[in-house]
Each structure stands twice: as structure tokens, then as C-alpha cells.
């Protein structure tokens, strides 16, 4: 995964939450990198740690209960975690912006949508109010909302429109990195199609890098260059979109594909992954997936880190039963 000119590099990120005296191991040594203009998909189920990774990149995890135990997050070579609060403010919403999953709760209900975007623009740019308002109108129109709706409040917009407002706000300061946390999960498919197309267009136009968090493999297939599959706070497989969709290797990735009802297959029975994701306060020894894995052997439950194996250039898999010896 090491490449030069990486705009974003995350190294060995470990994040824990403390709750009721118990330690929740949310992110357990995640490393990833992202080039300019590229989109990386983070795929995994609820509780896998996807959102925690994104929030750690912005350093907006609530502390307590969350604590970044170790790791480095380099943006343009600068370690975010080592910056002062004042310097972080300059990066958040400016260099790195985030689109949250639920547009209904991401907007201020008692402020017009235009004001909310203008506020962000004024905060990060040397604009006069008039310039900032003009920029807001420009952004609204870019995402397909007529400029006259500047004065309207969030409740006057539909879900899809609200998500566009959130996207307009995120893009208003020309971020270099966009963290999109399930940006279309709350939307209907036809609106999802419009929003994904819009995000793809804007990304190409502005050469923005993006991390797209989703549980929907179809969305990944349409938008991402690279994909990281996360299970219990670890990347279990990483590769290009082609690697992941044409030659998935990790038993968990295979399980995810098997769980999906196929559009072109009439078989009656689905093949779900048996069992449940592990309790993050008490992760299994060895490979976290071994209790649910059809290929697991005794070796998989031995103490110690399962290494990432490079199956082909750029395609990594964290499984001792896959790859070289198989």
C-alpha cells in the first residue's frame, strides 16, 4: 500500500472507546493511503469501525469516551493528530470535509440552508459577506438546487435535497479530501443514482480525493477506485475495485457477496455468513473472523497478528488460509 505522493496516509491507527469500565476495540491497527483524485471505499457491517476511522482522520472523535491509542494520520505529510486545536480548525471543513450519513440531523433546523453554507464559507475564506453568499448560491446550483431556495429551512426540503445541501456545504471550501459516510443510504434509489452521479462529476471536476464509507457493494462498484474491507476494526482485504469484485479472496469478503440477493440469479436460498460480528470488548484470539469462517482451522485462532499477504501487486488479504499456500 506504500506509494509516493500519497495525499493521505493512515498508519497503524488504533482507536478505543471506554464505556462502563470496558474497552471497546473499535479500530485495531488500520493503515491505508489515498492519492489525489482517487476514491477509496471502506466497506463493512455496522460496528466494523468505518465511521470511527473517518472521524479519526478529522480528529473529531469525542474524547472521552474515544481515544486514539496510537497511529499517525498524515495529510500532505502533516500529522493531524500532532497539530494544535487552532491548526486543526483550519483543516476541518476546509482541506478535509465530511458528509454525514443522516442529512436530517446534520443540518441546523433553525437556520436557513443558505446561511449554514455561508457560515462555513466565511469561516474558511477571506470573503466579504456578499462574496460568500454568491459562493453559496453557486454551490447550491452546482448540486441542482435553485439559488432562490437559499432562504429556506431544512424542513422545507426533501431527504434527497437535504443531502444535496450537505454535499454543497462540504464542497463549498474546495476540500482536497472528502469523507463521505454513507452519503446515499438514507435516499431512494433514483435519488441515490442522481447524487452518486453528481458526486462523481464534482470529484472529477475538482480532483478531490474521497473516502466513501458504505455497506452497499453496488455503490462501491459505481464510485470507487480502491476498496478496503473492514471487519472488527481491521482491514481484512484491500485492492483495486477489479481485485475485489473479480477476485475476492478473504472469506469475509466472499461471505458478503454470497449474502446479497443477486439480480440475475433465481436461486431460492441465500447464503448468509453464519453467526454475528464479534463483541468488540472481547475480540476473538487470532483472526477476528475465525468463529464465523467456513475455512477456519485451529491455526486461525492462535494468538498473534494475522499478517497481510500480497496476493498480487496491490491486492492484500489478511488470511493465512488464502494466498500463497492455497
Amino acid at each position: 500500500m506504500e506509494q509516493n505522493e500519497n495525499f493521505l496516509q493512515v498508519r497503524d491507527l488504533v482507536v478505543e472507546y471506554t464505556s462502563g469500565g470496558q474497552v471497546v476495540h473499535a479500530v485495531n491497527g488500520v493503515s491505508l493511503s489515498l492519492d489525489r483524485g482517487q476514491t477509496l471505499g471502506l466497506v463493512g457491517e455496522t460496528g466494523a469501525g468505518k465511521t470511527t476511522i473517518a472521524k479519526a482522520i478529522l480528529d473529531i472523535l469525542p474524547n472521552p469516551p474515544a481515544k486514539v491509542r496510537s497511529g499517525e494520520i498524515l495529510v500532505d505529510g502533516q500529522d493531524i493528530l500532532k497539530l494544535s486545536e487552532h491548526e486543526k480548525l483550519k483543516i476541518r471543513g476546509n482541506k478535509i470535509a465530511m458528509i454525514f450519513q443522516d442529512p436530517m440531523t446534520a443540518l441546523n433546523p433553525v437556520m436557513s440552508v443558505g446561511e449554514q453554507i455561508t457560515e462555513a464559507v466565511l469561516l474558511h475564506n477571506d470573503f466579504t459577506r456578499t462574496q460568500a453568499e454568491a459562493r453559496t448560491v453557486e454551490m447550491l446550483e452546482m448540486v441542482g438546487i435553485p439559488g432562490q431556495r437559499y432562504v429556506e429551512f431544512p424542513h422545507q426540503f426533501s431527504g434527497g435535497m437535504k443531502q444535496r445541501v450537505v454535499i454543497a456545504m462540504a464542497l463549498a471550501c474546495d476540500p482536497e479530501l472528502l469523507l463521505a459516510d454513507e452519503p446515499t443510504t438514507a435516499l431512494d434509489v433514483t435519488i441515490q443514482a442522481q447524487v452518486l452521479e453528481m458526486i462523481n462529476d464534482l470529484k472529477t471536476k475538482l480532483n478531490t480525493s474521497m473516502i466513501l464509507i458504505t455497506h452497499d457493494l453496488g455503490v462501491v462498484a459505481e464510485t470507487c477506485d480502491n476498496v478496503a474491507v473492514i471487519y472488527a476494526g481491521k482491514i481484512v482485504e484491500f485492492g483495486t475495485k477489479r481485485d475485489l469484485f473479480k477476485a475476492p479472496a478473504h472469506p469475509y469478503t466472499l461471505g458478503l457477496f454470497d449474502s446479497l440477493p443477486k439480480m440475475d440469479d433465481d436461486s431460492k436460498e441465500l447464503h448468509p455468513i453464519p453467526g454475528l460480528p464479534p463483541d468488540p470488548t472481547n475480540l476473538p484470539r487470532g483472526c477476528s473472523f475465525h468463529p464465523r469462517c467456513p475455512r477456519a482451522t485451529e491455526a486461525c485462532s492462535r494468538e498473534g497478528e494475522i499478517p497481510m499477504i500480497e496476493l498480487s501487486p496491490g491486492h492484500f488479504c489478511r488470511c493465512i488460509r488464502t494466498g500463497g499456500n492455497n
Binding site: 426533501s158 434509489v189 433514483t190 452521479e197 453496488g218 462498484a221 477489479r242 469484485f245
Partner: peptide, 20 residues
């Protein structure tokens, strides 16, 4: 509009104007 997991099948999408 359904996103497909078949990355080789080019999308032929009927785009709708506007919203419900």
C-alpha cells in the same frame, strides 16, 4: 437506478429529472 455489483456491465441508466 439500482447500483450493480457487476463492474463490467456498463450502466445504462434512465435518469429522472426532479424528485418525487
Amino acid at each position: 437506478a439500482i447500483p450493480s455489483i457487476d463492474i463490467d456491465r456498463p450502466m445504462q441508466r434512465v435518469q429522472l429529472k426532479g424528485e418525487i
